[in-house]
Design a binder for these strands. Structure first.
Lengths: 336, 336
DNA sequence: GCTCCTATCGAAAACGCTTTCGTTTTAAGT
DNA sequence: ACTTAAAACGAAAGCGTTTTCGATAGGAGC
């Protein structure tokens, strides 16, 4: 490996001077600059980031703590898009992303590991509330995605508002018997969406039979299937169902079709997330779109500010959602 | 930050001894071990990985070079699954993954950056052949995914065989007029699949009208749409089309439906990849499945071996593919 | 020619750890 | 009690940088 010493020897300057030209210090002559740069090029020198980090206490790495419950890891349809957006943004400022292995349930381990690596900041993407790292003793710039955390930066969608959008839309279409397939109530997003659903229903003076609210688990396709199955077995079936996640919605639609019914002619379905496949399925899924791009961007901006100690007050930043009307919902007037 | 010196001071031992217990050296007394470990716990000491890397010349990081052409980055439906599998495997050996920002087209930059970071190995996941890093002067353990590279480890699917499987199946169903929507011929996988298609057709003594082979670009949904559009405009339409990628296949199916035709009743479609949504679309997509799990696992194993200098002969490792029969294909006898 | 700046440079310490190799301590053997 | 081997320990060098602060050189001003 070629080091700063090799450059020094070759140019006749000291390592101090070499280091200075490499770091754009002002007081170094043009002549020295030229000679050093030439030598760097000729020897194919590359600075050693470990040494630099050791000396400066700055690693230019951002740790990514990734924990989801579908078990698909970074292939997660929603999180992966958010992280990609996050990555694109921090890259502009020369940060690399370090995916640390998170042994689920061992928060202490993860915490130490991040310290060990000396990352400049951390972004944690995870759904479960109770499983969260204990942030308070985690003295490091951090931003949470998809979940608020007291005293910490966090970026997440306006989940309640999303539910309102969905219910209002369904109501406008003439639906009165609206069911809700929720996510597991251990997840912040799932609770919020459920709350929003109830609030919106209340607003329209619609009652919610207890059987109309069914837990679909961790946003999985299978969970959606099972939940919808139960809904279909009801004597007084809903005419529309608002599902807390797109994957679950797809599972639900599948079950409806298998039962010989049609979407939206027999039952309207509306999802949440707007994952990439949503527009490709049949029928194209009407859903509440989360702005993954913005979420990633905002969380990156917040984290960068915090790293550079421009951190303002730390709290949650909620991102607006949007109703994407496709073809899985239908006015009751046209149903058969 | 608490260092090894703090532990030394607290326990009365030298930093050498502390370091030794931390690294499980044999010749250190039980007593010393106990005292040091206790102090570590009490002071909440975490070793500094930069210092360690500097001293040992081993970073325990694996660089990930990720370049795809859908523009979705790590949200790529196929690559993300492969990388996830790769990650799961290397994690077992305590490696973390470093995603370096790859400025497309600046291979030299990427190369330097990886050196700079001192990663122990590199996994490059990218489709384009001509854009590949110049591996020869890249003196570092490396494994390529989805594309062979002379003199380097590489793991990829048996693309030709996949095409054979598809064509044989279609042939068995009675189809004779089979078209192929290819991927851009700058990509290794696309070329192989196209070759395989021609070979298989030849085997069955089937001629391929030149209009039956149409380029769908970089495996995108839109590309599939356009390609299928051209196919539909033909006077002598194919009864089946083998599409080089699932996303493209979905686009193709969409166009077929829009034209008032049905899949598979009017046209059979078969894809390649078996992305997660393949089973959820309507009709469920018959496709050639790539074993993402195995690809990730194998490439991890190869890279780890290379890092530990157990590297055998470096060359491509081809992973078998499998035909997943779902419902987008139909026997000609039942077509209308 | 002398003083005093300013511009340029370099010696050396520091960052936190590993590892070699010599020294000391302990235990075993007689 | 003495020798010897083995076990336990530590001094110091080294890994490749950055950064402080003092030294030197050259020129301007008189």
């Amino acid at each position: 490996m070629t080091t700063i010493y090799d450059i020094a020897k070759k140019t006749g300057y000291s390592i101090t001077t070499v280091s200075k030209v490499l770091n754009d210090y002002p007081n170094v002559s043009e002549k020295a600059k030229a000679k050093v740069l030439a030598a760097v090029e000729e020897l194919g020198y590359t600075p050693n980031s470990s040494a630099r980090t050791l000396a400066t206490n700055k690693s230019w790495m951002i740790g990514v703590v990734f924990a989801e419950h579908l078990g698909v890891g970074m292939a997660h349809p929603f999180f992966s898009e958010v992280i990609e957006s996050f990555k694109k943004h921090v890259e502009l400022y020369n940060y690399d992303l370090l995916f640390v292995s998170r042994k689920m349930g061992l928060k202490e381990e993860t915490y130490r590991h991040l310290k060990h690596r000396g990352v400049d900041g951390v972004v944690v993407v995870q759904s479960l509330g109770d499983d969260a790292l204990d942030f308070t003793e985690f003295n490091m710039p951090t931003v949470f995605i998809d979940m608020p955390e007291k005293g910490a930066h966090a970026v997440y969608s306006d989940n309640k508002q999303g539910s309102t959008l969905a219910v209002d839309y369904l109501y406008g279409l003439g639906h009165r018997k609206i069911a809700h397939i929720t996510g597991a109530q251990t997840m912040y997003t799932a609770v919020e969406r459920a709350k929003g659903f109830e609030l919106a229903m209340e607003k329209h003076n619609l009652s919610i039979p207890s059987k109309y609210i069914v837990d679909g688990g961790y946003y999985s396709y299978e969970g959606g299937r099972e939940a919808m199955f139960r809904l279909l077995s009801l004597t007084d079936r809903p005419t529309a169902v608002f599902v807390s996640g797109d994957e679950m919605a797809l599972g639900a639609i599948k079950v409806i079709k298998e039962a010989g019914l049609r979407v939206p002619e027999d039952i309207s379905v509306i999802g949440f997330d707007d994952i990439p496949l949503a527009k490709h399925v049949d029928p194209p899924l009407t859903t509440v779109k989360q702005d993954k791009e913005l979420i990633g961007h905002q969380s990156a901006a917040l984290l960068l500010d915090e790293i550079n100690e421009l951190g303002k007050n730390r709290n949650g930043k909620v991102i607006p959602v949007q109703l994407i009307k496709r073809q899985s919902c239908m006015s009751v007037d046209h149903m058969w």
